[in-house]
Design a protein around this nucleic acid. Structure first.
Lengths: 233, 233
DNA sequence: CTCTTCCGAATCGTATACGATCTGTGATAC
DNA sequence: GTATCACAGATCGTATACGATTCGGAAGAG
């Protein structure tokens, strides 16, 4: 009866979810670049579904800010000016900060150990540097620290922030590899704060500053690049 | 050509938006109480539209957390346990705090004057206390202080927080009228911090604490009520 | 040569239709 | 009397269909 391609779990998966996953994947991996026009009928044909579920998926992505939508015009992958990255990082610095602080009391010694192991991999990664891998590990590290946040709204905001970030820029560390060294050091500092049952506000501000510094490093790099470019002209 | 009932602006309003506004209004004013089953066909008939736009509106409301949705089962107005209010207030305290701090440098003397005027109305309101009016003015006051926030994401989160709050509880001050007096005093303190160009972090924490205290007051009231109830039994 | 106007193709928004799934009720077995 | 099963009504999910709107290019006026 339930004859599905792979497993039975997604057998009950709606076509809307299928379309959503399809579009999100294509946007994330860069197949659909910012500004790309998302035509309902075309996508529907590609997926062998009707336009209705595709439409639903697009509206969902719109509410997450990954695509923009205009009445009677259609959808396109959201365009990002440089400020977009700035705003997303700033927002994430705030929500990830509180999430980490609220999570701290629920972090077990086992969690700390796992985080240290991941940070060790990050340090090891510094030698033969791969920005993409570094960023993936970096998320893993922070996820251990904020996933215990008891407030589901804040946790959701953190997830959305990371989601947007991966769409906006594959890895900040591609641009500012130097930041990676400081980053792993700060990770250890944050771990020590949590271990010491530090004041939640201290943990929050440390986590926030950690992210803000990555942002600042990128902004400084960009500033510098612009200066160099203007010298050539 | 564009012959509409009232104005021309909503002439281009889609039926999906109509359904969205209709549902949101009914949920906010309490016609549809938490747990109320939202049947697509029924709502569609009431609005003289088909189920498609209604469905779209409901999915939007779902993404905002106002309704819950289950595959092949349907939607109902989101149920709120007590923790829901707690989590929403906590989240709002954080995002409103940063929004206020980020907004502060862009607040003009004129804005400050407007805020003071609103706070004066709040003080005046303390005599013949109407919780609903007080809450509306309270939002107006804070809106003046955070609307200048340059980060659109954070601003959006603040708006969503307030939106959820009005759905969850008409007015916290109905339960804890005593909190209103302290509240208006803290308003003045926040205004003075902004006027003095205080450290953004100080402004942020003041704004955050202001909201947290309202939450704490409610929790204390509730605690007290439960104690009294258990005495009767 | 340039600007305006008009028309057709492409796409969107929504109505209708129909198969799939769930829920509750009544009949049957133990 | 209770538990299980089957069936019917209700509702959901999606396909198809069609009017409405937009956009781009061709035709014509200046």
């Amino acid at each position: 009866m339930a004859s599905n391609t792979v497993t039975d779990a997604p057998a009950t998966q709606s076509k809307a979810q299928l379309a959503y996953a399809f579009l999100k994947a294509r946007i994330s991996d860069g197949t659909f670049t910012p500004g790309y026009r998302l035509v309902l009928g075309q996508i529907a044909r590609d997926l062998n579904v009707s336009v209705v579920p595709v439409r639903e998926a697009i509206r969902l992505l719109e509410s997450e800010g990954l695509v923009t939508f205009e009445h009677n015009i259609g959808a396109q992958v959201a365009m990002h000016d440089e400020t977009e990255y700035l705003y997303t990082m700033q927002t994430l610095s705030v929500v990830e900060g509180v999430a980490t602080a609220l999570s701290a009391p629920h972090v077990t010694v086992d969690d700390i150990a796992r985080a240290r192991a991941i940070n060790a991999q990050l340090i090891e990664c510094l030698n033969h540097f791969e920005p993409h891998r570094f960023t993936a590990l970096n998320l893993e590290f922070h996820a251990v620290l904020f996933e215990n946040c008891p407030n589901p709204h804040i946790l959701d905001l953190v997830h959305r922030g990371w989601g947007r970030l991966t769409v906006l820029r594959d890895s900040t560390f591609s641009f500012v590899p130097g930041r990676a060294h400081a980053s792993v050091r700060e990770h250890e500092e944050i771990l020590e704060l949590i271990e010491a049952n530090a004041d939640p506000l201290d943990i929050e501000l440390a986590a926030r500053a950690h992210r803000t510094r990555t942002l600042d490093a990128f902004l400084a790099y960009q500033e510098n690049k612009h200066v160099q470019e203007s010298r050539h002209s």
